[in-house]
Amino acid sequence: MPHESRKPLTRIDPTAPLVLDTSALGRQPGSSREEHLSVPAPENFGVEMVGVPEGDPIGLDLRFEAVLEGVLVTGTAAVSLRGECSRCLDPIASDFEADFQELFVYDDTRSGGNADDEEFRLEGDLIDLEPVLRDAVVLALPLSPLCREDCPGLCADCGVRMADAEPGHRHEAADPRWAALQDLAGALAPAPPDRGDEGSRPRGSSDRREGKQEG
Rank of each mutant, 00 (worst) to 15 (best):
Ala185Pro: 03
Asp175Leu: 14
Gly153Asp: 09
Gly124Met: 09
Phe120Pro: 04
Arg177Ile: 04
Ala66Asn: 04
Phe45Trp: 04
Val52Arg: 00
Glu123His: 11
Glu97Pro: 00
Gly30Phe: 04
Asn114Lys: 08
Leu89Ser: 08
Ser80Pro: 00
Pro190His: 08
Pro167Ala: 14
Asp61Val: 01
Ser80Asn: 04
Pro14Gly: 08
Ala136Gly: 06
Ser94Trp: 01
Val67Thr: 11
Tyr106Met: 10
Arg27Glu: 09
Gly51Asn: 08
Gly75Leu: 06
Gly124Ser: 10
Leu20Ser: 07
His3Val: 13
Leu37Cys: 11
Gly211Phe: 05
Gly55His: 13
Glu214Lys: 14
Val137Asp: 03
Ser32Met: 11
Phe45His: 05
Ala185Met: 13
Val50Ile: 15
Gln101Asn: 10
His36Thr: 15
Pro145Met: 03
Arg33Glu: 11
Gln182Thr: 14
Gly168Met: 08
Phe104Asn: 08
Asp157Tyr: 07
Ala24Leu: 07
Arg121Val: 12
Gln213Ile: 13
Tyr106His: 15
Leu133Arg: 07
Pro2Arg: 15
Gly196Ser: 15
Glu35Cys: 11
Cys158Pro: 10
Pro42Gln: 09
Arg209Cys: 08
Asp61Cys: 02
Val52Glu: 01
Asp99Cys: 00
Asp116Glu: 11
Arg82Thr: 02
Thr76Lys: 14
Ala165Thr: 12
His169Cys: 08
Arg11Lys: 09
Thr22His: 12
Gln182Asp: 14
Phe120Val: 05
Ala115Lys: 04
Val132Ala: 13
Arg27Cys: 00
Asp164Gly: 02
Ser31Asp: 14
Glu149Asn: 12
Asp56Trp: 09
Ile58Pro: 05
Arg87Pro: 04
Leu60His: 06
Ser23His: 15
Arg63Tyr: 01
Ala140His: 03
Val138Leu: 03
Glu54Val: 09
Val39Cys: 00
Pro8Ile: 13
Ala156Trp: 09
Arg170Leu: 11
